[in-house]
Simulated assay, not measured.
Amino acid sequence: MGCDGGTIPKRHELVKGPKKVEKVDKDAELVAQWNYCTLSQEILRRPIVACELGRLYNKDAVIEFLLDKSAEKALGKAASHIKSMKSVTELKLSDNPAWEGDRGNTKGDKHDDLQRARFICPVVGLEMNGRHRFCFLRCCGCVFSERALKEIKAEVCHTCGAAFQEDDVIVLNGTKEDVETLRTRMEARRLRAKQVKKPRKPKAAESASKADSSEALLAPSEAKSGKPGEAGPEPQEKRGAAGPRSAANGASSGKAGKPGGPPKRSIADSEESETYKSLFTTHSSAKRSKEESAHWVTHTSYCF
Results as ranks from 00 to 15, higher is better:
residue 28 A to S: 12
residue 30 L to G: 02
residue 234 E to H: 07
residue 119 F to M: 07
residue 129 N to I: 04
residue 94 S to K: 10
residue 31 V to G: 06
residue 240 G to P: 10
residue 131 R to D: 08
residue 64 E to M: 14
residue 64 E to C: 11
residue 74 A to T: 05
residue 235 P to C: 11
residue 278 S to V: 10
residue 258 K to Y: 10
residue 95 D to Q: 04
residue 268 A to G: 07
residue 78 A to L: 14
residue 292 E to A: 02
residue 179 V to P: 03
residue 198 K to N: 09
residue 36 Y to S: 05
residue 18 P to V: 03
residue 111 H to D: 15
residue 6 G to K: 07
residue 184 T to C: 02
residue 4 D to W: 13
residue 217 L to P: 03
residue 52 E to R: 14
residue 205 A to K: 02
residue 220 P to N: 02
residue 296 W to F: 15
residue 100 E to F: 09
residue 109 D to M: 06
residue 79 A to G: 11
residue 207 S to F: 03
residue 41 Q to N: 12
residue 83 K to M: 13
residue 129 N to W: 00
residue 13 E to A: 06
residue 189 R to F: 12
residue 295 H to C: 14
residue 237 E to W: 15
residue 146 E to M: 14
residue 161 G to C: 00
residue 136 F to N: 05
residue 3 C to T: 13
residue 247 A to L: 07
residue 63 I to W: 03
residue 244 P to F: 09
residue 262 P to R: 11
residue 205 A to V: 07
residue 260 G to K: 00
residue 303 C to E: 13
residue 18 P to Y: 00
residue 141 G to T: 05
residue 34 W to Q: 01
residue 243 G to I: 15
residue 86 K to S: 03
residue 244 P to S: 13
residue 75 L to Y: 12
residue 227 K to A: 08
residue 225 S to K: 14
residue 293 S to E: 13
residue 104 G to P: 11
residue 159 T to L: 15
residue 130 G to C: 00
residue 238 K to H: 09
residue 213 S to Q: 09
residue 52 E to D: 14
residue 211 A to I: 00
residue 82 I to P: 01
residue 84 S to T: 06
residue 212 D to R: 11
residue 115 Q to E: 13
residue 272 E to H: 04
residue 1 M to K: 01
residue 226 G to H: 06
residue 207 S to R: 10
residue 198 K to S: 02
residue 3 C to D: 15
residue 173 N to Y: 00
residue 218 L to R: 00
residue 73 K to P: 03
residue 187 E to V: 15
residue 70 S to G: 12
residue 1 M to H: 13
residue 173 N to A: 06
residue 74 A to H: 06
residue 158 H to P: 00
residue 167 D to T: 01
residue 258 K to T: 01
residue 39 L to M: 08
residue 170 I to H: 09
residue 236 Q to V: 12
residue 250 G to N: 13
residue 151 E to L: 15
residue 234 E to Y: 06
residue 23 K to M: 10
residue 147 R to Y: 15
residue 206 E to D: 04
